[in-house]
Amino acid sequence: MSGALKNSLLWGTVVLLTFIPLLTIKAPGGGTDNQAQGVIEKLAPDYQPWFESLFTPDGASESLLFALQAALGAGVIGYYVGSVRKKRAATPPANVRNRAH
């Protein structure tokens, strides 16, 4: 199997794993972090959290900040992809170089 085909199959699997639940699940169960909090409240009903988050963003700002975090990462990876591709394009392939001598 060629590398490109394998890569496309891998991308396809990742996309399916993400979108099948989005399309099929009608009643989302919420995040696991919150569910764990629910289990704690059942196991230790008397437990009082002794510290509160200093700052809690509302829903829209939360999405924005998560997107910002992902964008920072994507920017760095995009820079890396661009720079190595450019470097590769600037260096002629080995067989071409050999012929020149």
Partner: peptide, 8 residues
């Protein structure tokens, strides 16, 4: 979202 309906 995961196949179980929860997200993580």
């Amino acid at each position: 979202p995961s196949l179980t309906g929860s997200s993580s």
